[in-house]
Nucleic acid binder design. Sequence first.
DNA 1: CACTTGACCTGTCCGC
DNA 2: TGCGGACAGGTCAAGT
Length: 291
Amino acid sequence: MPELPEVETIRIGLAKLVPGLVFARVDFDWPKGFPNLARDVSKHLIGARVLSVKRRGKALVLELSSGYSLVIHLKMTGQLVFNGGGERFGGGHPNDSLIGDLPDKSTRVIFSFKNGAKLFFNDQRKFGWVRLMPSREVSNLEFIKKLGPEPLASGLTAREFTERFHRRPNTSIKAALLDQTVIAGVGNIYADESLWGARLHPAVLVKNVSIYKFEALFRELKYVLKLSIEKGGSSDRNYVDAEGKKGSYLSFARVFRREGQPCPRCGTKIIKIRVAGRGTHICPHCQRWPK
DNA sequence: CACTTGACCTGTCCGC
DNA sequence: TGCGGACAGGTCAAGT
């Protein structure tokens, strides 16, 4: 689901809405996704104030005044939707929102604040999770420690970007792009979009990708991620932002979910293949197998 | 070790 | 209309 631009869009929305709010209660019905929530809620969550909302890769971190943090991963179908109190979602335009009244049958956790506002964690497929843990231990989480650099970090150079990929020389460039320990935050949509931008076939092995292609890939990846954040992310079916609104990146997508349509560069019909176990969209003319 | 595949879940869509 | 199978934005554990 949500990849870097979608999680970042949610983070920006929540950062405007929740800092300063105090937790009053938490309701959840699916212990498997929230292993330690029940045990620690009364001591470290109730009565705590939200200090900040941060993102690392595809994970969100809400830092609390209790010294604890909520770490949240939305996986494929997770949503975090805020309701300031009483009003319907969608800003008066029902078609802007995929969400009707909450809670609904995909609601897994309801965070209620002292002022009456609520934050709903919805997740149709139940892959997502929420953890409550001491803030200073967040950076020691195994998956956080292993995460690659943020692709949009100002200090990241094309050279460092390229070197990260060479940790996986014998895998396909697409599998490496999707590997969160190589570069953080890239998922299926922006992998396909950036590979098209760089005219790279997704199944080419990392060791056979030239330094010039890596430079192009780095540039194109940053371009699609920034553009998507500007557009509020991509909404296929489930994704909505903190206010329940869809993002519009997919109407700008060049190949993703566009099989059968003409390549915007050369007009060749876009095809869908399978690479790294994932549905993969390419222009067979622009993204030819290298000789 | 490096890499790929299946499993985790629910819902939807497509072909018969 | 019903039913089976494939597939969906992610990530692990298990398999080769």
